[in-house]
Simulated scan of single mutants.
Amino acid sequence: MVERPTYPCDLSDARWALIAPRLNAWRQARTQAGVGGRAATHNLREIFNAILYVNRTGIARRYLPHDLPPWQTVYGYFTAWTNDGIFVQLNYQLTGLTRTKAGRAVHPSACIIDSQSVKTSTNAPLPTQGIDAGKKIVGRKRGIITDTLGLLLAVVVTAASASDNTIGINRLDQAKAIHPALAKTWVDAGFKNKVIEHGAALGIDVEVVTRDPQIKGFSVVKRRWVVERTLGWIMQHRRLARDYEALPDNSASMIRIAMIDNLTKRITDETTPTWRDT
């Protein structure tokens, strides 16, 4: 790897050691299958560093610094890893390691569901957008499921006009397939009987948690505060302040990358330097 000044979002040796086996296995499998034509020459660590740079800073890929791999190459790998489920696999693996470090079972038995509507950029095709009538936002809706530690278990990105019921059912199916031990989930009042009935069919008890009507202004809501905190974590990555991706699947990958960044730091006990550290 060519020596260059490091960026705050670059992977340390310890964090790269958590990610490298999965990416190296992916490249080896493609090489043996004859996919991609000529032999790969780009360093996978630098490719991942470039993806983290875009995710953390929010810049357009075309504006990647010249000491990182070409933006076309970075986008090509990002698309391939999205299509091949590499970000899903990494998130699953790192979530298990983080839960183990926290003294929890590898597979969670309880989760929390929530959604977030965000505006889109001009990159997003009109058919993938919609209007969230409640929040008066034109864009897309991110539906996530977290465990009780706030770690991402499943994510789906749809048009903002999609109902919480539709998103909730999709997320329950996705989370149950990946984490079969799930037996309990907490949701807000936007999720109706369809989600509760679908959860029962999957063996998941769905409990609706509502705010105390006697309390005015902001209040911490039981269990739901955990998933709200997770949404706050991912919003620290500027690429997620708005949905800039042309495809909803790419948007979901950007959310998973933000959590992979978070999880690797939790496992290695690292933090990202900020202006406060000076």
Rank of each mutant, 00 (worst) to 15 (best):
A175M: 12
A160E: 04
A183P: 01
A183I: 08
D173P: 00
T185A: 13
T148C: 08
N170D: 14
S163P: 05
V155S: 12
K176C: 06
A175R: 12
K176V: 13
A159V: 03
L172Q: 11
S161Q: 10
A181S: 14
D147E: 05
V157Q: 02
S161M: 06
T148Q: 02
N170K: 13
I169F: 00
V156W: 00
T166Y: 09
P180R: 10
V156M: 01
P180D: 15
L152W: 06
A175D: 13
G168C: 11
N165H: 05
T185G: 04
I144Y: 05
G150Y: 09
V157L: 02
S163T: 15
L153S: 04
G168W: 00
I169A: 07
V156R: 06
G143E: 13
A177T: 10
T185Y: 00
I169W: 00
Q174F: 08
A177S: 15
I167S: 04
T158F: 01
A175T: 11
H179V: 09
V156P: 00
L182N: 08
Q174H: 09
I178C: 08
L151Y: 11
G143S: 08
A154I: 06
L172S: 11
D164F: 05
A162K: 01
K176Q: 14
A154P: 12
V157W: 01
R171W: 09
